[in-house]
Every structure is written in structure tokens, then in C-alpha cells.
Design a protein around this nucleic acid. Sequence first.
DNA 1: AATGAATGAGCTTTCATTCAT
DNA 2: TATGAATGAAAGCTCATTCAT
Lengths: 200, 200, 200, 200
Amino acid sequence: MSRKKDSEKRKRILDSAIKVFARTGYSDARMQDVAKEADVSHGTVYVYFKNKDTLFVSIFQEILGELIQYIGSEIQKEKNAEDKLRRMISMQLDIIEENPDLTKLILIEFPRSGNFLSDSNTDVLSRYIDLISDVIKQGIDGGIFSIGIRTDIIATMIYAGIQGIATRWILDGMSYSLKVMHKEITDILLNGLKSVTSDK
Amino acid sequence: MSRKKDSEKRKRILDSAIKVFARTGYSDARMQDVAKEADVSHGTVYVYFKNKDTLFVSIFQEILGELIQYIGSEIQKEKNAEDKLRRMISMQLDIIEENPDLTKLILIEFPRSGNFLSDSNTDVLSRYIDLISDVIKQGIDGGIFSIGIRTDIIATMIYAGIQGIATRWILDGMSYSLKVMHKEITDILLNGLKSVTSDK
Amino acid sequence: MSRKKDSEKRKRILDSAIKVFARTGYSDARMQDVAKEADVSHGTVYVYFKNKDTLFVSIFQEILGELIQYIGSEIQKEKNAEDKLRRMISMQLDIIEENPDLTKLILIEFPRSGNFLSDSNTDVLSRYIDLISDVIKQGIDGGIFSIGIRTDIIATMIYAGIQGIATRWILDGMSYSLKVMHKEITDILLNGLKSVTSDK
Amino acid sequence: MSRKKDSEKRKRILDSAIKVFARTGYSDARMQDVAKEADVSHGTVYVYFKNKDTLFVSIFQEILGELIQYIGSEIQKEKNAEDKLRRMISMQLDIIEENPDLTKLILIEFPRSGNFLSDSNTDVLSRYIDLISDVIKQGIDGGIFSIGIRTDIIATMIYAGIQGIATRWILDGMSYSLKVMHKEITDILLNGLKSVTSDK
DNA sequence: AATGAATGAGCTTTCATTCAT
DNA sequence: TATGAATGAAAGCTCATTCAT
């Protein structure tokens, strides 16, 4: 056991926190449990994180922030707005499938956090919604999409629609793969955007 | 003491619970606060509800159950699947706008409940998803919609998309009316269903 | 056991607090111990007192405040400044002898409290010093005492001299009575005041 | 590492402890803070002192012990009891003024220590009281003082009276000098001793 | 000798729940 | 039925102390 500062241990605690918060929810999660999961004393958690709040926020700031940054850089590689959006949706579904605990947190615990946390972490997610929103705007400018209402609301709806899929998938016990549905889900969401005709 | 008076008080406590749970979240809400909001002693809450869990579940069983039943009966009046779906979406948006606290609960607290509650209340929401799912099936059978993947997943996505709008609307401080967006939102969701063509 | 609000119980907790704080000191005293001493659950202490600080402050505000008020009213009965001062000193010694735990608190814990408490309670003791100071002033005005330096400093010295006696008495295990020394102690303190002659 | 360097560090820690214990009180002082004040790691404190208690006691044994020894040797130079006593009082006031932190400790933290520490350090202070007491006895034997009650109680009262001045001085923010009051304070205390005449 | 990461005992405080009235 | 005083389990957090380096 090295006594040198251990950034690997910090990561381990953060990962444990994701697991435990996902399992029990923020309020009902005990620091003790996070510690046990990380195989450290509960006092040690406080060496790395000031308190429970900070630990929770750090998940979003560090883990989620990283993911969003990754998505942002990946879509640069796509040429047009439609491909960008398809890629984003695909990646979001992949991330969901590969990080079910984090997904649970984002779906379930994150929305609650607004109640008691600073908005510093709200920003993390807003950044993602903005990313979608920007791509939609590009699509409108490029003539691919034709939408009247605020793009951020549409972006939220797309984001939430996918998260809804995730909710159902989690409730179904994550018993099937989301991969096979990528195309169809993307088609539905994109065709909706493309063909809005207010032929009232 | 007449029965009538009692059931009035019971309803008052239930409504207070919606408010308080919406405001603070289930875990952080205190029975004391629910009692104060209902203008009764906190001991009285236990006369009507066995414990905190029961109180929480009752919200969904009684209030939400009623709403879904109402929606179910209303869409009977519509002829075809498309109109039924449009009406459902409209009603869902109306209910959201008229019951922001309940909406918050459904969006935020309800998903967490799976962790600690019996699935008896999951059923309440499932019933609504099923309702959507059934209408979609009718639409497919009637040739209006053309979708390959499971209709319950699509139904969940529609439901969640709308809830996503609600989330954004709540985060925006409920500062605008959702009514003006009914048509456009409905168009996007329905056109997506109608025109799935894998012509990529 | 009456379930009605019990102001007798409040007093019991306050008295227990005096005992326990005197025995262990404020910081080392456990709320649990205060509760046990008062024969209630530790949760009950919080029914009557917001927190540990409040409990501590209440001792001074309520118990000590009462005593000082009593002394103040008693010395009104004495005619001249010297008799007033003699009576004050006597009463202070009596109170010390009859309330050794409270005395310990005043001697030992009270001075520390300045570090972490509001000055609201400093006021309680200041009021007593002021009382002495006022009587000395009367004595100077009446020509009985002749003192050059600030009367509040002299008052503090008198007060502290007596408390010093108390300290020694407590260290001696409170094995003798202070009553027999009243006259001599008072004489020393008063003669000092009367005969200051800077015949340097 | 030379021995010299070590004992310098030891002294530095001891001085830091005086500062920190004076500032926060024994119980609320953190070893961490003592270490930081001494500019060493908190682990290092344990190299020189077994534990917190030992550190605290060492202050009195080493620092205070030295001072008392110094006073004891100084008063040998005075001829009669009155001059000895005047010199003691003067020196005590000087020491107070020059070591406010130590004074705070003696006034505030030391009395508490009886609760949890061995009496080994009570002895340090007793030695000083004894010193005063002895001088008073000499005065009585020499016919200068005339006192009936136990000289150790009078000694305690004198000691405490001065400490009372110190308490007030500290509460006043140490904003004035005690030096100008030496004579008057000494006069009051000594005249009291000299002129006890129960001529009431 | 010096360090500081790690530990865990132990504290205050909250609050769901009970139950005498 | 309605009340609210009383309870005590349970949680977050601190910090003296240890010990591998």
C-alpha cells in the first residue's frame, strides 16, 4: 500500500459513488456505503471530497463533463447537420448502454439535484442540450430541417425522448441491446424534424 | 364526525403531500411539513396514512390513476388512431400545465420510487404507456403508422418526449404557456411515426 | 406520565446541563449525558433547546440572570454604599456555596464561551460587574471610598477576588463552609477601598 | 540532525500550542492547527509530544514553571514582606501584559484542565500560591500584616484578584497598559491586608 | 526524524413514528 | 379522532492518532 497521494483512489471513490447513488438515490445513499464500495474507510472519502454534496457534484462535473466533451469533438467529423444529429443520438444511446449506473443518475438523481445544488452542474447538461440545439439550427439554416418553435425545446425533447428509451430499457432490466434500434429511433426523431408541415 | 369531513381532510393531506414532495423531493420532505401545509397536526397524517411510503404511493394510485382513467375515457370519443393520439398528447400537455406540482413528482420523484416502492404504482404509469401503445397499434393496423420496433418503446419515447418538454418548461420557470405549442409538438411526434422510411 | 407540555421538564434539563457542563466542560460534554442526567431521551433535549449552544446560553440567561436580578433587588434594602457592598459580597459567597456546579460553570466555562458565543450572555455577567461598579461610585460620591482608577476595574477585581476564593474552595473539595469567612473577606476588600492613600 | 535543531523545533511547537490553545481553547484546538502554526507537519507534533494532553501539560510544566521559578528568585532580593509582595504583584502584572496568550491559557484553559489532567500541573500553580502565602506569613510574623484566616486563602484571593484584572484587561482587548495601575492595585491589596480592623 | 494518507471512534442533529391524553 | 411530546435509529462529519514511506 503506497501512502503517496493516490489519484487512482480518488477515481475509485468517484466510481463507487456513481454505483451507490444510482442504487439508492442521493438522499438515501450513505457515505459509509460509498466508502465500503470503494474499499476504503468512510473517513477517507472526506480526504478526497469535502462532503456528500461535493462528491455528488463531482460526478457530473468530471465524468459527465468528459463524455459531453467527447461527443462534441466526435461530431465535428461529420459533414452535415443530419449526420451530426444521427451520430449524437447514436453516441448517446451507446453511452447509456455502456454506463447504466451513470445513466440512472442522470435520469433520476440529476433532475432532483436542482433542488439543493448550485447550478454549476446544471450547466454540464445544458451544454449538451445546447450542442443538440446548435446542430438543429445548422440544419434549419441549411434547409434540411423546418421547425418553427424554439430549437432548445426541440433539443430537449429529443434528448428526453432518448432518455425515455433509456428509462424503459432500465425498467426492462437492461435485458436487450439498444444497438439494434439505433437506426429506427434516429429515423423517427429526424423525420419528425424534417417533415413538419403546418398544413392546418 | 361524519365520514364526509374525514375524507375531505384525507384529500387535503394528499394535496399537501403533492406540494411538499414536489418542493423538496420525497426523501427530504418532512411529514411535519406535509401536516403543516394541510393545517393538521403531524400525528393526524398517521391517522389517514400508515406511513410516509403509503402517503407517497397514494398520490399516484389515487390522483394519477384518476387522471389516466379520464384520459382513457376521453379518447374513446375520437374516431381514428391519429386523432386519439393527438388528443392524448394535448391532454397530457394540459394536465402538465394545470398541475405543475404533480408533474414535478411524476418527472422527478416517481422514477426514483422504483427503488424503494412496490411496483403497484409502476403499474399506474404503465397503464398510460399501454394506452399510448394500444393506440399506436391501432394506427399500425389501420395503416396510418408504419413502425417496426416494439410499440411500447415508441410509446415510452413519445411519453418521455412530452415529459422532456415539461422538464424544460419547469426549468424555464413555467413562464410561458404550453398551449400554443400543442400543434407543432404533436405534428413532430406524429409525422415521425407516419413517415418512417429507411431510405437512407 | 403527562403528555402535556412540561415546563418542569425543561427546568430539569437545564439543571442537568449545569451539572454535566460543570463536570466535563462545555466542549467535552455530550448531549447524551445531559439527557441521561435529566432522565430523558437525548432527542427530548432538542424538543426544548434548539442545540447545544442554545442550551448552554440558556443557563446563563435564565439561571444566572435570575440570581443577579435577585441580588439587585436585595441591595436596594441597604442604606449606604458600604452596607450594599457588604451585602453583595455576602450574597455572592452564599450563592457560590449553594450552587457549586453553577459556580464552576461561571468560573471555568463561562470565560471560554466568549470565544464561540454571541455576547448576549457576556451581558449577563457585565450587568453584575456594573452593579458592583455603581455601588462603588455611590461610595466615592458619598465620600466613603477614595479610589482613582476606573471603578469597573475595581469592581472586576472584587468580583474576581471572590471568584478566586471560590476556585480555591472548589479545589479544596468544598470541604469547609465559606460562611465563617464572610466578615473577614468583606473587611479586606472594603478596607482596601477605603484607605487608599497614595503617600508615595 | 543535531540535537540543537530538534529542541528548537520542540520549543516552536510549544509556543504554537500556547497561541492556538489560547485562541480556540483546548478542546476545540486541532493538532493540525498547532502544527500549521509551528510550520511543521501534524505528524511531527507526535514526534515531540506523545499526545494532545501531554502537549498541553508541557506548557504549564515548562513555560509556567520557568516563570514561577524566576519570580521566586527575584523576590529574594527584596528585604521585607511588603516589598516582596509588591514586587510579586508587579511581576505578575508584567508577565500578564507581556504574555497575553499564556495568560489566557492560565485564566481560562488551565482551570478546566483539572477535570481531565493529572494534578501534576495543578502543582505548578500551587507553587506560586504557596509563594505568596509564604510571604504573607512572613509579613504576619513580622507584624506587618494582621490577618486571621488561612493565608493560603488570602493568597488565592490576591492571585485571583490580579487575574481578574487580567480577565477584564483581555476582555477590554488589551487596549491599555497595566503598568500605570501597578501602584494603585498593589496599594489596595496590601492596605487591605494591613488594616483589617473589625471596628464595624 | 518527518511526513501526510488513512483510519474509525464518537459527536451532534434530524425526523419518522409511537402513544398517552 | 386528533394531538404533539417523546423517542431513538441513523446519518454526516471531525479530528486525534497511527504508520508506511
